[in-house]
């Protein structure tokens, strides 16, 4: 996305600053781990350039602020931390994440929230392919992804639980979401999309419905949270039209290999 559209970091009370210039990802993650062990609870990472797996090994309520573009699998298997990415993120962000929050001021790549089990991800810009692929929920654990812009193909592929919200706020007039094959293999969870998309190319397992009642409450809650992170107006983002996409069955392939 356009660089000027990416917000400057708000003044952050950091108790550690880590300069990642030229630092190999293993060394970086080890240093982060030790900083957290020593009690740091707010860490600013400067000059990040493609280092992978940031935040994976931190099981503490720590806040990371990332300057630069972090590498693949940011927050993979993450359990607890809050990560603020002041720029774009790459692929596999939030992979199998368990709890915590990732806030991305730019855009994110493919398989965002892949197999996510809990926590939430907020992306101000656009996202790539297969976002939310096989995310799932159980009991109180209900992962949420809110995308300000649009998503590319196979959004919510094999989705088994959780909530995906796409707000379409970067689409121009007379534009629709490019997303095709939304919800292919979807058998749980819920997707809300604001604005038009091409219905001819939906996943076969998906049903469409208008939003009402509980949907609106849920949208209000998460869109307000999204708007809060990026200083946007929730009321205008909540102006529809929203479409709800739900799985027609919980076992789309139940009869595939059985006669």
């Amino acid at each position: 996305m356009r660089k000027e559209a990416i917000a400057e970091g708000t003044a952050i009370q950091a108790d550690a600053v880590l300069d990642a210039q030229g630092l190999y990802y293993r060394d970086l993650n080890e240093r982060l781990y030790h900083l957290v062990e020593q009690g740091a609870r707010s860490i600013v990472l400067k000059h990040i350039a493609g280092q992978r797996y940031i935040g994976t090994n931190l099981q503490a309520p720590v806040r990371l602020t990332i300057e630069g573009v972090p590498g693949n699998d940011l927050g993979a298997f993450m359990d607890g931390p809050e990560i603020y990415v002041m720029n774009d993120a790459q692929d596999g962000c939030g992979n199998t994440m368990n709890s915590g929050t990732i806030v991305i001021y730019g855009s994110a790549g493919d398989i965002l929230g892949h197999s996510m089990r809990g926590g939430s991800i907020f992306v101000r810009g656009n996202v790539g392919y297969r976002v939310g692929i096989h995310m799932k929920e159980y009991g109180e654990m209900r992962p949420v992804i809110v995308i300000g812009g649009t998503a590319q193909h196979f959004l919510g592929e094999y989705m088994a639980g959780g909530v995906l919200i796409v707000l379409g706020s970067h689409l121009g007039p007379n534009q629709m979401h490019p997303s095709r094959y939304i919800g292919t293999g979807m058998h749980g969870g819920i997707i809300y999309i604001r604005g038009p998309f091409d219905e001819r190319f939906l996943g076969k397992e998906v049903g469409l419905a208008p939003v009402q009642g509980e949907d609106l409450l849920l949208l209000e809650r998460y869109v307000a949270q999204f708007a809060g992170y990026f200083g946007l107006d929730a009321a205008s983002l909540l102006q529809g039209p929203f479409t709800k996409l739900y799985p027609r069955t919980k076992r789309p392939y139940g009869r595939l290999y059985a006669y």
């Binding site: 649009t150 534009q175 629709m176």
Partner: peptide
């Protein structure tokens, strides 16, 4: 390029199934 997809001759009306 533009991120969206033009709503042109293939413009679908959002229907509810």
């Amino acid at each position: 390029p533009s991120v969206g997809c033009a709503v042109s001759e293939v413009a679908p009306e959002v229907r509810y199934a």
